[in-house]
Design a protein around this nucleic acid. Structure first.
Lengths: 232, 232
DNA sequence: TGCTATTGTGACAATGACGTGACGCTTATG
DNA sequence: CATAAGCGTCACGTCATTGTCACAATAGCA
């Protein structure tokens, strides 16, 4: 039934939080190792090579962000996804954390279910080969490194949300997604947004793609949307 | 008409709060059942199997947290998401509530809009869709993941009802079904539609499949229809 | 061959889902 | 501070889908 659990390193100075996370992850079939500070954590990373790290922002000693930076600088550990745990209202920290290389963040307090959901999403997204390689479909090219979309060598100007939407579609082609799934994957799990908002961004993306490529995004009536180069 | 809303159990000792929530949920298309204490609530959970529970923290008798723990301990009820209603400033309670298995919390006072939004988000996370395998019969392939029907790599365009009809047939081949059975299985149990409506959708499906595949759907005179790759 | 029950077929109005433009709000940018 | 850009929501228009009907076609049977 359950696959061999991925190893998750939890870094937090509060033992009760670690305990709660460990329980939640255990029930979801993950192996959990714990550290109370970044020094122990660093040793455990080298030692156990976990598949993912849950990292509290507020830590005594070296701050979480510094720890994240150090991991991302080392090729051996740069590929390990990091989810940052932040307290409510620390918006600035989130941005800094993401810039430091974190792959997602969760605001405390969070539910075990949400934790596992985000964790799954990040692990799913963390396909090593994918994230930085350009993707091209029938003359439409998305380059994550340049953070730019090109249509036959002509730049296409779109907003951040449309970019993430297109990136998700191009990395998950052929498959149909409901509005709810798109909100989860593109907007992030814990935002409360009307489902019809997806329609509007689909519209903006289609318009930006132009007649040349807008047929790539197909409406699946009664279900959601799909990205496919095949006609539909 | 057919959209039977999800059932939501509201547990709160103040009737006015329950009333307000019931109205808000009703307008959003949810069925709402109410309980004033955890004993009634527990009976209603067993009885009605709600899809989600809104649970006030401060309750006379068994506290909300105890109630939540009991539900999460029972396999039959452990999967029901719980949103806790807490008063402002009860930060400790929130953490305890989440540890007890609650999936989210809302701080009073809250707007109906926020309530519905959070509720949607939790329900969205709680209902992952199953990964179904594609089915193929003599060049006709139905892929539930792409939500698409292909005839020898050519997409076939059909409406949602025809899609569900075809999906049911392809997962229940070789057997004849009456119109009443098809209405049950494809339309859903408690909708009133004429039996002849099935004929019309069979017709539409056959037409969409084209001469290539329409013989797969066979008329069983006096009984109903059957999906089979064998002739006659 | 006729007769009747059953099914096929095209059309139609009502419904609902989706597309589309506009608006106000927030946040970046100068 | 002013301006611009991006975002989420709404209201309305448009079109696909749906259930129903009337009538034509067909199979089964006397």
């Amino acid at each position: 039934m359950s696959k061999v659990g991925k190893k998750v390193l939890v870094v937090d100075d509060e033992a009760s939080i670690r305990e709660m996370i460990a329980v939640a992850l255990g029930m979801a079939g993950y192996d959990c190792i714990e550290a109370a500070n970044t020094q122990d954590a660093h040793a455990l990373v080298i030692d156990n090579k976990p598949d993912m790290i849950l990292l509290d922002w507020m830590l005594p000693g070296t701050s979480g962000i510094e720890f994240a930076r150090r991991l991302k600088r080392d090729d051996m550990t740069a590929d390990i996804p990091i989810i940052m745990l932040t307290a409510k209202g620390e918006e600035d920290n989130k941005i800094q954390g993401l810039e430091a290389g974190a792959d997602d963040y969760i605001t405390k307090p969070f539910s075990p279910r949400e934790l596992v959901a985000r964790l799954k999403a990040v692990l799913r997204r963390a396909t090593p080969q994918g994230m930085d390689e350009p993707i091209e479909v029938s003359g439409l090219k998305l380059d994550p490194i340049c953070h730019r979309v090109m249509s036959h060598d002509q730049p296409i100007d779109i907003g951040p949300t449309e970019y993430r939407l297109l990136q998700f579609f191009m990395t998950h082609q052929e498959r149909a997604y409901s509005r709810a799934q798109l909100l989860d994957q593109v907007w992030g799990g814990n935002v409360y947004v009307e489902e019809r908002t997806v329609d509007v961004h689909i519209r903006r993306l289609r318009k930006a793609l132009g007649a040349q490529h807008d047929h790539l995004i197909q409406t699946v009536r009664g279900t959601g949307y799909r990205f496919s180069s095949k006609e539909g």
